[in-house]
């Protein structure tokens, strides 16, 4: 359970530190629920045979889902006072398929005096890194009363 009353500021950020991870088991029901909600109805994301014809072991997560989970991880860390500025250089290394448990993880790589914080973010399963990206967020400089 996330405590949304908590707010980190730039002062709390340590370069080199890992941020709290999130995880999710990928089931076909989850992929169907996600396709319905994000509207990417491409068959590779909910049809095993079609997914296998493109090299996946099973139906696999779509890009909107992956980026959405990254947003959840970043939001849970930066709190309601943070702002998402950029997710870039997002590269798919391998499929995230039904049966996987995926983990979103991130590491702070830099911070600037204006509140900008840079992170390396990634998705992993039990065996490998499946997606990598860079993120830029903006945090409050100080706590306000």
């Amino acid at each position: 359970m996330v405590d949304w009353s908590r707010q980190i500021t730039l002062d709390d950020v340590v370069v080199g530190a890992e941020i709290p991870e999130i995880s999710m088991p990928i089931t076909l029901q989850r992929l169907v629920m996600e396709a319905g909600s994000n509207r990417d109805l491409s068959l590779i994301h909910h049809n095993r045979e079609v997914a296998q014809s493109t090299g996946g072991a099973d139906a696999y997560m779509n890009t909107f889902f992956i980026i959405g989970l990254f947003e959840r991880m970043l939001r849970e860390w930066m709190g309601t006072g943070g702002r998402l500025k950029k997710i870039g250089s997002l590269q798919m290394k391998s499929f995230n398929v039904v049966g996987d448990v995926v983990y979103c993880r991130g590491k702070v790589t830099g911070k600037q005096d204006d509140g900008t914080v840079n992170l390396d973010i990634r998705m992993e399963n039990e065996e490998r890194v499946t997606v990598t990206a860079l993120a830029v967020v903006s945090l409050p400089l100080h706590m306000t009363a």
């Binding site: 996330v2 996600e34 909600s37 889902f65």
Partner: peptide, 12 residues
């Protein structure tokens, strides 16, 4: 619904 599938509950 978008948040439900990601088990996400940010109040904003």
């Amino acid at each position: 619904r978008w948040m439900e599938s990601k088990e996400f509950d940010c109040p904003i």
